[in-house]
Design a protein around this nucleic acid. Sequence first.
DNA 1: CGGAATCTTGAGGCCCGTCAATAACGGTGG
DNA 2: CCACCGTTATTGACGGGCCTCAAGATTCCG
Lengths: 224, 224
Amino acid sequence: MHIHDAEGCVRLVPIFKNLDAGTITAIAQLVHEHNVAAGDTLFLAGTDADALYIVARGQVKVTQDTVSGREQMLRLLQAGDFDGEAVLFTKTEHNNNAIALTASQVCTISRSDFQQLLRQSPDLALNVLNALGQRVVTLENQATAANTASVAERLANYLLETSAAMGDAEFTLPLRKKDLALYLGTSAETISRRLTTFEDDGLIEQSGRGHIKIVDADGLGLVI
Amino acid sequence: MHIHDAEGCVRLVPIFKNLDAGTITAIAQLVHEHNVAAGDTLFLAGTDADALYIVARGQVKVTQDTVSGREQMLRLLQAGDFDGEAVLFTKTEHNNNAIALTASQVCTISRSDFQQLLRQSPDLALNVLNALGQRVVTLENQATAANTASVAERLANYLLETSAAMGDAEFTLPLRKKDLALYLGTSAETISRRLTTFEDDGLIEQSGRGHIKIVDADGLGLVI
DNA sequence: CGGAATCTTGAGGCCCGTCAATAACGGTGG
DNA sequence: CCACCGTTATTGACGGGCCTCAAGATTCCG
């Protein structure tokens, strides 16, 4: 399903929910559409944070690099997800990279336009506050999990979350194992091994390329 | 230096900076002071998030528990730091624990009072947005470091940051090694070992209980 | 059908967590 | 001022999880 107008982008995004029609129309006129191919860069760390990015279609990974040259995926943006709230701060530099994993459609709102919107609509400011709050909660969980949980535990949780998001015990992984490894802070090889272990233990069934069926959700929840 | 009035708390906190005098006075009247002893609990995960907490004096650790029973310190609150922005969201439950490490003075503002303040003062809302943005940035760095960096690297960075915060190459660790281990996602034993390695490599000098002098800051920055 | 990317499986090694024992520190009371 | 005790820190030994390198298998796409 393609989205052809800017207003489609606006309607997708939680931070623009529950705003009056006039405001939504005003926002839509500030939105720019972009189509990007797999591998394309939306922005890089160190460059000016000049816009808010909304993913209308496709997948975009948000990553961070370390001094040691490794790469960590912080989130996977899918339809309706957004990034670049750095536009809100005095600091105007991205500290993340955003790269399309698949052909994607992305909408942007410029920094100045968005800041002006914020001042005009208190409801929007509250929506953004809530969105940032959710992100804080997610990141806190991520930081805790990264430090205290084994790969098996993180992977098991990821499978359960993905299944819940899909609304089905049977699904195809939305990421290549290589990218999933970046996300979970491990290696593709280890993911292969752990999935095999899960299958041997009767927790899941694998078939095809990344197709997974959760057989014993309770058991997965107990993985340590 | 003790702070005896509620307005002291208000002046400490970044989110209350740059507000007009009237607003600050109004806020001060909504603030409650509390004195807590080392080991006291401010709030626990799962309980109602009914207030914003501001640390006026002392140290408070904010931690999160995992299913496997381990504990991860997310931040260390010191004078001027605050927590409990969860009061902003629909969700009214803490997902963190806050426990005093030393005797501390804490100020609180109730959920309803704070939400009312938010609606009345757009400047305050923008301040909170900025504060949340900073927290997101910090947490992103933390999540990345936890997943990609070795303990040696995380510890080296921590020493450099602490030194910078203190404004001195020579300082005493603000945390016991046990708590520092919780923060860095490692064990007290490993911290001892790494510090000894740093000393053997001529990067730092240790003396007394947790007293550290950074000899080769550049070298510490290169630790992997 | 062929080539490139991805995935799987194996072997080896290192980092680090855990357990355990000893040492050093710090506060308290005599 | 000193002796004592609980807490904290150090050091050693051991084992396991996982990263890396490498080779082979599978899948996908032109």
